[in-house]
């Protein structure tokens, strides 16, 4: 077998050493640095992208939190304002009602006083008119001239009978 022809060994080993050293140089000077560069670049890019994604995510979360705080604040403020306005309106209504009620009470009282007065006056007049009418009727029908005092007494009795 040619494999055991020892005269070819020095040549084979020499060229093996030369070529494998050349390949080593090719790999270490060209192939490996270039591949390492592109792999590093990719790794770095992925890390950067992930980092950016992380950052954007935290920003989004912060924005959402801020938005929710603002929303809650606005809602609370709106509630407070509504309550304040409602209370003010209620108070104003109550005040106006009280005022109007007071005025009406005064007016009612005045009216009642006036009515009482007018009734009293009317009643007094009724008695007088009744006496005069009675006296007139008696003088016309009977031709009698009655004593004013007796007529008044009779009118008073008649009114009492009618419950007035």
């Amino acid at each position: 077998m040619p494999q055991f022809d020892f005269s070819t060994f020095p040549s084979q080993i020499l060229w093996l050493v030369i070529t494998i050293f050349a390949l080593y140089l090719v790999m270490t000077r060209m192939a490996i640095p270039r591949l390492a560069e592109v792999l590093d670049q990719r790794q770095k890019m992925m890390d950067d992208d992930l980092e950016q994604a992380e950052r954007l995510k935290s920003q989004t979360e912060a924005a959402i939190a801020a938005y929710e705080t603002a929303l809650a604040e606005a809602r609370a403020k709106a509630h407070a304002e509504i309550r304040a306005v409602t209370e003010a309106a209620d108070r104003a209504t109550a005040e106006r009602t009280a005022e109007v009620n007071a005025r009406l009470a005064v007016q009612i009282k005045d009216g009642e006083t006036r009515i009482v007065k007018a009734r009293d006056a009317a009643l007094a007049n009724v008695r007088e008119v009744a006496a005069t009418v009675a006296q007139g009727i008696v003088s016309r029908l009977a031709g009698l001239s009655l004593d004013t005092k007796r007529v008044d007494g009779a009118v008073a009795t008649a009114l009492k009978e009618h419950g007035r």
Binding site: P10, S11, L14, W15, L16, T19, V26, M30, R34
Partner: peptide, 21 residues
């Protein structure tokens, strides 16, 4: 120390990957 057919293929085994890479 002749450059043989074996040496030639060794050289190819250097040039091929060198070109490829």
């Amino acid at each position: 120390l002749s450059f043989t057919n074996s040496s030639l293929m060794m050289v190819a085994a250097v040039l091929l990957p060198a070109t490829f890479f």
